[in-house]
Structure formats: C-alpha cells, structure tokens
Amino acid sequence: MPDYLEIAGRRFQSRLIVGTGKYSSFSVMAEAHEASGAEIVTVAVRRVNIQDRSKESLLDYVDRGRYFLLPNTAGCYTADEAIRTARLAREAGLSNWIKLEVIGDERTLFPDNEALLEATRVLVAEGFVVLPYTSDDPIVCRKLEEAGAAAVMPLAAPIGSGLGVQNANTLRIIREQTRVPLIVDAGVGTASDAAIAMELGADGVLMNTAIAGAQDPVAMAKAMRLAVEAGRLAYSAGRIAKKMHASASSPAEGLITR
C-alpha cells in the first residue's frame, strides 16, 4: 500500500520535516538534510543585514528543486507580527504555506493559543496553507482545524528541550479527533522519541535541535529517518495489546520433559 504524507493536496514520501537552525555550518546542515530524507525544510524570516552583505545565504545550501521550503513565523509574539511575517514569507518564497508560530512565553516558548487562532483565521482567509504550532490541547487543536488549518502541530515537549513525548495520552486523543494531518512539532530528543510519536499515530514529526544539536548531526538525521519510518510502520501494523502477565510464544505441547 502506498504510504505518503499529504498536506493541502501535496504529497510527500517522507514524514520527517526538518529545520535549518543551530547547525555548525551550512554544509553540515545540507548533509544532514540529505541523510534525513526529508522533503520539507522549515526556514525562519529575519531582517537582511544591511551593514554586512558578505555572509553566505542559507538558500545556497537548500536545493529548492529537491526540498519544499516551509517558512515559519518563529520568534513572533503577537498575531499581527506573525501575520506580517507570513505575508513577507509568501512574497520571498513564492509559496503560500506557513508554519505559524505565535509564542506566548519566552521561558517555555509555549504558544499563545488565542493569538494563534486569530492569526490562523486571518491567514486562511488570505489563502494561506496554515500549519500551526500549538500546545497539546485537544480543544485548541479542534478549533484550529475548524478555522481551516491544513494540519495541526502540537508539541510533544517544550521546543529544544529534547525531553521526548511527555503527553502520549493527549496526543492519542488529538489523533483520534483530527482529520487533517497531525504533525508532532517540538520536543523530540532522540530517535526513539520520534518513533514513539509516530507509533501514537502522528502523520509526521518536525524537528530541528535534536538533529542540529547532536554530536554527529548527519548520523542523527539518518537515525531520525529510520525512526520515523519504523514508527509509522509499527503504527500501521497494529501493535499487540498490553497484558499484565506473560504469554508464551512457543507451543505448550511436545516438550520433552512432559
């Protein structure tokens, strides 16, 4: 059976979405992207440095024929800032997709869900494909979906924390109710975390720090690719029920001692 991630009518073979921040160099990032097998790469929008034009451009290291650029509104703290950033990103990237973030608190980087909903409604009305980073609140996720979000992207743990999936049950509840793609966005620390997110039924996982911050980002990128594939396969395969006691897997008959 063909398996692909479909968001807003666009199909992707890979269910892993990766970021472009925190790498030691653009060349390491490009290698890690390749090893990850990801097809969607998220990028931030920032002011051009007017004084110093000598720096290399990120876009020299992201082959746009191969990767789909997903601009984000990372760093925005109000709906207005996020909306302005999304409009600029559309003009710079010639795509109407936006990973929408409206941060509510500097220390936890948790989203401001009220502002997030407001920005989602405005941007959907303007024709954007909106992928909102949200807290793991099933009610907020449902409202985002009703507002026209193309996916819902709850966190598994705080951004950059590497704590892994801290909210398995709420993610399960969100999975059960969600019709649009469910992407676990933030909190993954290592490969098993990504596999767990996928086993819970996520349609994809988005990560940045877990790969970029690893001792060997290229090796971790490959580990994440395999983990996302393994987790998806395990979810599709249908796991056994958990039992309290043992259940032998060899026949009880024919033992030489009986």
Partner: peptide
Amino acid sequence: EIVNFVGGGHA
C-alpha cells in the same frame, strides 16, 4: 523592512 530566509526551526 527588507527580510530574507535564515536558518531556524522553532521560535
């Protein structure tokens, strides 16, 4: 304001 794409994933 003149902006461009830079490395970033979250926040």
